[in-house]
Simulated scan of single mutants.
Amino acid sequence: MVEHRRFGNLLPHLILWVGVLIVAFPVYIAFIASTQDNATIANGQMSLLPGGHFLETYYRTLFVGSSGTTREPVGTMLFNSFVMAMLIAVGKIAISLISAYAIVYFRFPFRMTIFWLIFITLMLPVEVRIYPTYKIVADLNLLDSYAGLTLPLIASATATLLFRQFFMTVPDELLEASRIDGAGPFRFFWDTLLPLSRTNMAALFVILFILGWNQYLWPLLITTRDDMQTIQIGIRKMIVTSDALTEWPVVMATAVLAMLPPVAVVVLMQKLFVRGLVETEK
């Protein structure tokens, strides 16, 4: 018998709402600031209610640009960040699936040595290999290109490890049944392993998309043209040295717009994301 307490969950819910307010209040302030005029924000007279410049500010942000060190419209920056995040997420998952499949289901010399070499790369921070990676990209003439933004970041030891651990839990009977049916390695991978890995791929996609979307250091190094910069670089360039010259409504509108794609990905893939993290039986 389950005992229902009317006030038993009051404290946990109160703590939850306080946490939500702490996280959401800065986002609300950014939205409110994006609807005000620049003089009101610069004078410190911004109210907590929306202003009357919503359509004007967001139209200018998306299609015109700011007067900071970058004049590229935010719509272009959003597109660049979206392409970069998608290519990184899809590329990491594809390469990790193939490499994990090869390590688990194929027998070849130095198989485990190769796996441990991949695993050891987790101990190397990005800053350690940033210069040689940049040198290679520059020598291949990939600066200011989507290939230069994404290819050096596609390989993922973490995703390879996760898919390897999952493939090792797949019963050997499935492999034997596929062989009896005349399925080759590719068909077994495509018809059996990929459907079983759907929730894992969804969970990794959400994490890797947000990881790619929030990249700052690598796009800062690899892009020199305004039309190839990502949204994070654009926000930084909009903020000039003098606060009086910074168009804060445009900056805040850009910050709000930068939050929307990751939030949309999490909301749309919430069920698969949770199942991929907590599901233990396949």
Results as ranks from 00 to 15, higher is better:
residue 186 F to R: 05
residue 187 R to K: 13
residue 217 L to M: 14
residue 235 I to G: 03
residue 224 T to P: 01
residue 208 L to G: 01
residue 208 L to N: 14
residue 206 V to N: 03
residue 169 T to W: 04
residue 179 R to H: 10
residue 235 I to W: 00
residue 192 T to V: 15
residue 183 A to I: 02
residue 214 N to H: 04
residue 187 R to A: 14
residue 208 L to M: 06
residue 205 F to R: 06
residue 199 T to R: 06
residue 235 I to A: 04
residue 189 F to Q: 11
residue 199 T to Q: 09
residue 216 Y to C: 01
residue 186 F to V: 15
residue 196 L to A: 07
residue 186 F to S: 10
residue 236 R to D: 07
residue 192 T to R: 05
residue 185 P to T: 08
residue 189 F to I: 06
residue 178 S to M: 06
residue 226 D to T: 06
residue 216 Y to I: 02
residue 217 L to Y: 10
residue 226 D to A: 12
residue 215 Q to P: 00
residue 187 R to D: 12
residue 197 S to M: 12
residue 215 Q to H: 00
residue 191 D to S: 15
residue 225 R to M: 12
residue 169 T to L: 14
residue 188 F to N: 09
residue 204 L to M: 09
residue 212 G to I: 00
residue 186 F to G: 08
residue 198 R to I: 05
residue 228 M to L: 09
residue 209 F to P: 05
residue 203 A to P: 01
residue 215 Q to L: 09
residue 169 T to H: 11
residue 208 L to R: 14
residue 201 M to L: 04
residue 177 A to Q: 15
residue 236 R to S: 13
residue 179 R to I: 09
residue 170 V to A: 08
residue 224 T to G: 15
residue 223 T to W: 00
residue 215 Q to G: 01
residue 232 Q to W: 04
residue 234 G to D: 08
residue 179 R to L: 12
residue 205 F to T: 00
residue 168 M to C: 07
residue 213 W to A: 04
residue 183 A to T: 00
residue 210 I to A: 09
residue 194 L to A: 01
residue 217 L to T: 15
residue 183 A to Q: 12
residue 179 R to T: 12
residue 196 L to G: 10
residue 227 D to Y: 08
residue 206 V to C: 03
residue 170 V to D: 12
residue 191 D to C: 13
residue 195 P to H: 08
residue 208 L to F: 03
residue 223 T to C: 05
residue 198 R to C: 00
residue 181 D to G: 13
residue 191 D to M: 15
residue 217 L to N: 08
residue 209 F to N: 06
residue 209 F to T: 02
residue 184 G to F: 14
residue 172 D to W: 09
residue 187 R to N: 08
residue 216 Y to W: 14
residue 230 T to A: 11
residue 190 W to S: 08
residue 232 Q to H: 05
residue 172 D to K: 15
residue 216 Y to D: 00
residue 234 G to F: 06
residue 176 E to C: 11
residue 198 R to Q: 03
residue 208 L to W: 11
residue 216 Y to R: 02
residue 205 F to Y: 05
residue 196 L to T: 07
residue 209 F to G: 02
residue 207 I to K: 07
residue 227 D to C: 05
residue 200 N to M: 14
residue 233 I to T: 08
residue 221 L to R: 02
residue 213 W to L: 03
residue 183 A to Y: 14
residue 178 S to V: 07
residue 189 F to G: 05
residue 234 G to L: 09
residue 189 F to E: 02
residue 201 M to N: 05
residue 202 A to P: 01
residue 200 N to R: 10
residue 172 D to A: 11
residue 186 F to D: 04
residue 222 I to Y: 06
residue 212 G to P: 03
residue 185 P to F: 13
residue 192 T to L: 08
residue 206 V to M: 05
residue 195 P to Y: 03
residue 194 L to R: 04
residue 234 G to Q: 07
residue 177 A to C: 09
residue 201 M to E: 07
residue 202 A to R: 00
residue 224 T to E: 09
residue 190 W to F: 13
residue 202 A to Y: 02
residue 233 I to F: 00
